[in-house]
């Protein structure tokens, strides 16, 4: 074709290379390109539009390690039509990919600061790339804290990896569940309860929050109570998305297009809209 710019709406075909069942409803797909060029640079927090043949296309965050361009990893919870069909995919099956899109966690700007990552449920997947990055460059950051809340012990995502992080001396990992099931002996209660005692210096902290909106709302409040300023708090938003490139209008949130201005926003600049309903 003669056009200089590639069509941003067109998918590229990838192949499912590996499937990992994470929890009863959540799975991770590792994708490989079918044209041999297995290089997919992305920044922590960005997402792709994944297309399942005959079903549809949805936004899914990249949950892999940004320093490893060769494998493209997404972690998805089966909740409906497209995610349900995605769960049926087998090794070798095709999937369409467009991306990467959107803003990212400001891991570069956070150097020199303590970093607090607060994740709720599936929200751990979109922040995992940021944690990978920080752990690769551990010496550049102050304290690193991960606070993770999940519904039940069985819903804890990346369980083995979380255990590994917990065993490290240079990261503080605290996990809590809403509802304990035998033999859980850890924290019970909402994730925000762990904020008051978490080991970080509020005046020198950058926070990344990812989870349901209500959880992010209370997390922001708790962080503010400790003295973290809103320009150092980052959240990741979810909105309906049909295009991811600013054409379809679906993801609008006040003046923002979540697809291109977000999904990661600094709280100070979106506070006005975040605090209102049905925007």
């Amino acid at each position: 074709m003669s056009t200089a710019v590639v069509d941003p709406m067109r998918s590229v075909v990838y192949e499912v290379q590996r499937i990992r069942k994470e929890t009863s409803d959540t799975f991770t797909l590792e994708l490989h390109s079918t044209n041999g060029s297995n290089d997919f640079p992305f920044a922590a927090g960005q997402f792709n539009m994944l297309y399942v043949f005959g079903v549809g296309e949805i936004p899914i965050s990249i949950s892999g390690d940004p320093s490893k361009h060769r494998s493209l990893i997404h972690t998805t919870r089966a909740v409906g039509l497209v995610t349900g069909a995605m769960r049926q995919l087998k090794r070798g099956d095709s999937i369409g990919v467009r991306g990467p899109f959107g803003s990212h966690w400001p891991v570069e700007h956070a150097t020199g600061y303590d970093v607090v990552i607060v994740a709720g449920g599936l929200g751990l997947a979109p922040v995992r790339p940021a944690l990978y990055h920080i752990l690769h460059h551990r010496e550049k950051y102050g304290n690193v804290v991960l606070l993770y809340g999940s519904r039940t012990p069985n819903d804890i995502l990346f369980r083995r990896e979380v255990e590994k992080w917990r065993a490290r001396l240079d990261v503080d990992v605290h996990v809590t569940v809403d509802r304990a099931i035998h033999p859980w002996r850890g924290n019970v209660g909402v994730v925000t309860r762990m904020i008051p005692k978490a080991p970080f210096d509020p005046l020198n902290t950058v926070a990344f929050i990812c989870g349901p909106e209500i959880m992010m709302r209370f997390t922001v409040l708790e962080l503010q109570k400790r003295g973290v300023t809103t320009d150092k708090i980052f959240i990741s938003m979810e909105r309906n998305m049909k295009c991811a490139v600013g054409f379809c209008g679906h993801c609008q949130w006040g003046p923002n297009f979540v697809c291109k201005d977000g999904p990661v926003f600094d709280y100070a600049s979106v506070k006005h809209f975040f605090e209102k309903r049905e925007i």
């Binding site: 709406m9 043949f53 005959g54 079903v55 549809g56 296309e57 049909k242 295009c243 054409f247 379809c248 209008g249 679906h250 609008q252």
Partner: peptide, 26 residues
């Protein structure tokens, strides 16, 4: 007003799928 939605259309034997863009409304 520019908003659109994108819809999937498949043939009966499931061998072809078409991606259609159509006007949508907030």
């Amino acid at each position: 007003c520019f908003c659109v939605s994108i819809e999937e259309q498949t043939d009966l034997n499931g061998q072809t799928a078409e991606r259609w863009q159509r006007w949508d409304s907030c």
